[in-house]
Every structure is written in C-alpha cells, then in structure tokens.
C-alpha cells in the first residue's frame, strides 16, 4: 500500500520539477523519473503477466521520446559513430 503511494507521489514531485526547470535539456532527467514512477504504478495496480509487457512498452516508448527530443534539439537525428 505504501509502495504505490511512494511511486505516485514521486512522479508528481518530478512533474513539478519539470515545470519549474528553465533549461530544456535539464528537464529530461525529471521526465525520466516520471516514467519510472508511472511504470511502477502500472505494475503495482494490476498483477498480471501482461502487465510486464505494458510497463516495459510504456518505459521504452517514453525513453525513445526523450531520446528523439534530445537528439533533435542537439541538431538532427544523426548518430555520431
């Protein structure tokens, strides 16, 4: 019972930090904290085998979104290898 409240409250805290941070690139670590918290909430709400797939899909999708935003901000989707 306490675990799910911890995840949800920390997600809201990170959301407030996203709004108050001025630098666009330094917002992205807080977005990452939100996706950790929300993936934890999804898994704790409904213990079912398919929930792992839902949490992983949400987490990977959110990570890909942050990756695309950061790469476009830095100047294109090129890879530097």
């Amino acid at each position: 019972m306490i675990a799910i409240v911890v995840c949800a409250v920390l997600a809201v805290y990170a959301g407030l930090r996203v709004v108050t941070e001025r630098n666009t690139m330094k917002k992205l670590p807080f977005v990452n904290v939100i996706s950790f918290g929300v993936a934890g909430v999804i898994a704790l709400l409904l213990p079912h085998p398919l929930t792992i797939l839902a949490a992983a899909a949400y987490f990977v999708g959110s990570t890909l979104e942050s990756n695309a935003i950061a790469s476009t901000w830095a100047g294109g989707m090129r890879r530097d290898d």
Binding site: A8, A11, G15, V18, V19, T24, K27, L28, V31, I34, S35, V38, V41, I42, L45, Y58, S62, E65, S66, I69, T72, W73
Partner: peptide
C-alpha cells in the same frame, strides 16, 4: 518553446496510463 511543449505533453500522457 516547441521542445518545452513536447516535454510537457509527455508529462500529460504519463498521467493517463494508470
């Protein structure tokens, strides 16, 4: 800024999932 808008949009989507 359009990038700030997209980041805020992903915060909103995160709240819908639970």
């Amino acid at each position: 800024d359009p990038f700030d808008k997209l980041i805020s949009l992903s915060v909103m989507i995160a709240g819908v999932f639970p």
